[in-house]
């Protein structure tokens, strides 16, 4: 069994790493990581805008965003990917690589999730900070920019890392639209070998485990660091942070 696994790795490591590239699109682990990084990089600014809109008193702003958040919380990602596969080419009017479709879907999905994280971070600060900034004459947006967001975003860094881990796990769902990622590469290997499915999927699980575990550790260590740094200032309500943790730490 172990020798099978070593043999598979020896024969297929390049496919697992970069897919068919350069004879085909970039795939494998490289595509998985690229997809995740790009998704989070775009989702982050989107999430701040969504969080601010959701916190605003204007129903014109907070209603659509609330609807979007409930939508993404209530509909399986798989369904959203199918929607993306159907809608993205319709909107752009061209055939679009599945990688891009998946990226757009993930940005919307994780953007909505992340906006809840950011909003949670802002709300957890309490009224005092906003009030103090307003009393000094800052505008609402000025207070957000200089007082609230620097703290809230810093405090939610661990949650952002958790969302990143979720994103990596979510990229596996790209298989429904044939995104050439790590899982896709493993399926290809399985189709070629036919006789060693356990070994192939074991390797797949192990690779994801190593990556996600390491990042989760980073999240935990960052969290500790932040808690240490914040010790002495107002302690945050446990209930709030519990809720926040539950939100970001989703199985996928």
């Amino acid at each position: 069994m172990i020798s099978d696994i070593i043999a598979i790795i020896r024969d297929y490591w390049l496919l697992l790493l970069i897919g068919q590239y350069p004879n085909g699109p970039l795939g494998g682990l490289a595509a998985t990581l690229m997809l995740s990084v790009l998704a989070i990089a775009f989702a982050f600014p989107v999430s701040i805008a969504l969080a601010l809109a959701r916190l605003s008193k204007s129903p014109l702003l907070n209603w659509p965003v609330s609807a979007l958040v409930y939508f993404t919380r209530g509909v399986p990602l798989l369904m959203l990917i199918l929607w993306g596969y159907f809608l993205v080419p319709l909107v752009t009017g061209a055939s679009v690589p599945s990688f891009l479709t998946m990226l757009v879907t993930l940005v919307v999905y994780q953007g909505a999730f992340l906006s809840e994280v950011v909003r949670g971070g802002i709300v957890a600060l309490g009224h005092g900070q906003m009030e103090a900034a307003r009393a000094l004459g800052h505008s609402y947006l000025g207070a957000m920019r200089y007082v609230i967001l620097p703290q809230a975003l810093y405090n939610v860094i661990p949650s952002i890392i958790s969302v990143f881990v979720s994103t990596i796990k979510d990229t596996t769902l790209g298989y429904v639209i044939n995104v050439p990622d790590l899982t896709f590469a493993a399926s290809q290997i399985n189709n070629q070998l036919l006789t060693q499915p356990f070994q192939v999927f074991f390797i797949l699980a192990a690779v994801y485990y190593v990556i996600c575990w390491s990042l989760s550790r980073v999240a935990v260590l960052t969290e500790r660091r932040i808690t240490r740094k914040r010790a002495g200032t107002a302690a945050q309500a446990t209930a709030k942070s519990l809720k926040l943790a539950a939100l970001t730490d989703q199985p996928s």
Binding site: A135, G137, T233, A234
Partner: peptide, 18 residues
């Protein structure tokens, strides 16, 4: 905002920016 900046306010709970 301009008027507020001309009225200093000190809170019971300080509300310094941590």
């Amino acid at each position: 905002n301009r008027l507020r900046s001309r009225i200093g306010f000190v809170f019971q709970s300080f509300n310094l920016f941590p």
